[in-house]
Computed example of a mutant assay.
Amino acid sequence: MASLARLKIGKPGTGRVIGDKFVGRAIRIYLPLLALLVVTLFPFYWMAVTSFKSASELFDFSVSPLWVREPTLAWYQHLFTQTNFPHWAFNTAVVATISTLISLFCSILAGYSLARLRYRGADSIGWGIFVTYLVPPTLLFLPLTFVIRELHLFNNLWALILTYPTFLIPFCTWMLMGFFKGIPRELEEAALVDGATRIQAMVRIAIPLALPGILAAALFAFTLSWNEFLYALIFMNDSLVKTIPVGVTQELIHGDEFFWGELMAAALLGSVPVAVLYSFFVDYFVAGMTAGAVKG
């Protein structure tokens, strides 16, 4: 009976050790994660709360700004009926999608060529492409403005579709180079021995194996295109062809007058597509970024 009691009670101090480990784990892991989660999600919460407040509640400083007493959809209704937000959203989606597809097509071909094909100057070209990405857009928009003017593309979505790949292709190419270098050459060599062409080996072997990296590059390109502001501000003056970042900041801010309800509603709706994409493909994005950073 005594031995059975000792087994049930356990060793002296075991509970204290387990409690100390739990407290230490909470301090080292859970508290920093909780702080990071609050800092990350609070802007979205603030946008959502503000967008559902009425005008009277929005400027009532006698109550807590963190809660909504009487939710309303008036700001969303005004955004969709009294502004050109539907046009801005459509323009942003079209530009981001087409720019991403163009950039991926060029980056896959360039990344595979620089990673797999042996020819003189491949390494120098690879470094040159990456250095091109480091050039800030503030130095490129002046010459690009002259190009767009000569092509008569002002207030045309093609102005953005053609200029966005100038900063998307270099980074996507560099990232995909690391992924293609991580694929064993023996797989493609075996396909070439079996009679496949280089194009067939790339399409049927290299690209499927590099799919996580391609999806990571696609997310990166789409996010940059969706949130790009400088080129859209310079090339788009007509309200109907503006994108969300430019339209919201120009049409919903008049001098020192801020339309906070519409601003927060537009900001929240503009963040949803990118957030949804990352929620579905976050594993591929992390795998692509980490693999592209260490390979090659």
Rank of each mutant, 00 (worst) to 15 (best):
W158L: 14
W158F: 14
L160M: 04
I161R: 02
I161E: 03
L162M: 10
L162G: 05
T163A: 15
Y164S: 02
P165T: 05
P165Y: 01
P165I: 03
T166L: 11
T166P: 00
F167C: 04
F167N: 05
F167T: 09
L168C: 08
I169V: 15
I169L: 12
I169Q: 08
I169S: 09
P170M: 10
P170C: 09
F171P: 00
T173M: 13
L176P: 01
F179I: 13
F179E: 04
F180C: 06
K181E: 14
G182P: 04
I183H: 09
I183N: 07
P184E: 04
R185K: 14
R185T: 12
R185Q: 13
E186Q: 14
E188N: 05
A190S: 15
A191D: 04
L192H: 10
D194I: 10
G195D: 15
R198K: 15
Q200S: 12
Q200Y: 05
Q200E: 13
Q200P: 00
M202T: 11
M202I: 12
R204G: 07
A206R: 01
A206Y: 06
I207A: 08
I207H: 03
I207E: 02
P208M: 11
P208V: 11
L209D: 02
A210C: 03
L211F: 13
P212M: 00
P212F: 02
P212A: 00
P212K: 04
G213V: 09
L215I: 15
L215A: 13
A217F: 06
A217Y: 03
A218F: 11
A218L: 14
